[in-house]
Simulated assay, not measured.
Amino acid sequence: MMLTGMHIAIIGGDARQLEVIRKLTELDAKLTLIGFDQLAHSFTGATKASINEVDFVDLDAIILPVHGTNVEGKVDTVFSNEPIPFTEEMLLKTPKHCTVYSGISNSYLDSLMKAVNRKHVLLFERDDVAIYNSIPTAEGTIMIVIQHTDFTIHGSRIAVLGLGRIGMTVARTFAALGAKVKVGARRSEHIARITEMGLQPFYLQDLEKEVRDIDICINTIPHLIVTASVISKMPAHTLIIDLASKPGGTDFRYAEKRGIKALLVPGLPGVVAPKTAGQIIANVLSQLLFNDLQKRKGNL
């Protein structure tokens, strides 16, 4: 599975992008790296450039960081002092087949991709990426619990909110460490699955009642669910860990007022295991790029 002949621009990012660069150069892609001027390491087949030096006419794909752009349309990078502009003018120069890849999107990126009529692939909406990423997420959550509690995970009472791709892994992992895990869900099939896993299920409509005796609340649901009313029913020592994407699903203002420690920690894979998180992205990206190349060659 080689990517010979593909010209790909990688714009900004963090340590995860290094694994992407490493993988794509191994597959013989031609890479232009933008926003990597402070990166000491060099990769054969990859050329550093400023955004003004890039020939967008020649690009087959553009890889943005996990977060894409910020709402002002700039791409953040840890390998340069300045964020990089990502504009309609640039994208309109690209060939029609040029595909943009990012982990997630926002209002700026959504409207930009619609305006230029280019394909935009959101990697973190894919089941495979989310399931692989749930592993370092669960490990990172264990790390945070240990750092912020004075009791063992074993024997502690934990409520996990949501049985999605992350919730399932987190619930199973903490149960394996000896915690007493209950899982809240809305759908009856999720309640059935929680029961099958040997965990205690409850419907989220009963959340206020279910948090009265917990030590830790782990939320994976990306809208406000851990409300002031829910927090008011928790024991004073409860630790809330919110894994949902910003702004999370917790009323952090009320938690602070009540003196309950509440932490918003999205993007744990990139924090606790950037190498593994980067390899997950790189492996999926390389397959998608290869499929794209084969389609254009008429082989698929």
Rank of each mutant, 00 (worst) to 15 (best):
S245L: 07
V230I: 11
A255V: 14
V230W: 01
P247H: 01
P247I: 10
R253Q: 13
L243Q: 02
G249R: 05
P235F: 06
R253H: 11
K257E: 15
I240H: 02
S229P: 03
K257F: 13
L243S: 11
Y254H: 08
A236Y: 04
P235R: 12
A244P: 00
A244Q: 08
V230T: 01
P247M: 11
G248P: 06
A228V: 07
P247R: 03
I240Y: 03
A228K: 15
E256N: 11
P247C: 10
K233M: 14
T250A: 07
A255H: 08
Y254M: 11
I240G: 03
L243R: 15
M234P: 01
H237W: 01
G249V: 10
H237L: 00
I241M: 08
A244L: 07
Y254K: 07
S229C: 07
I231V: 08
P247Q: 01
A255N: 15
L239D: 13
A244Y: 05
P247W: 04
D251C: 08
P235H: 04
L239G: 14
P247T: 12
A244N: 12
A236I: 04
A228L: 05
T250C: 05
S245I: 06
L243V: 14
I240M: 07
K233D: 09
A228I: 12
G248A: 06
K233T: 12
A228N: 14
I231F: 05
K233V: 13
S245A: 13
E256A: 08
A255D: 09
T250L: 08
I241W: 03
D251H: 05
A255P: 09
S232C: 06
K246D: 08
S232Y: 14
K233F: 11
T250I: 10
A244K: 10
A236N: 11
L243T: 10
G249N: 05
S245K: 04
I231Y: 10
L243D: 04
I231C: 09
G248N: 11
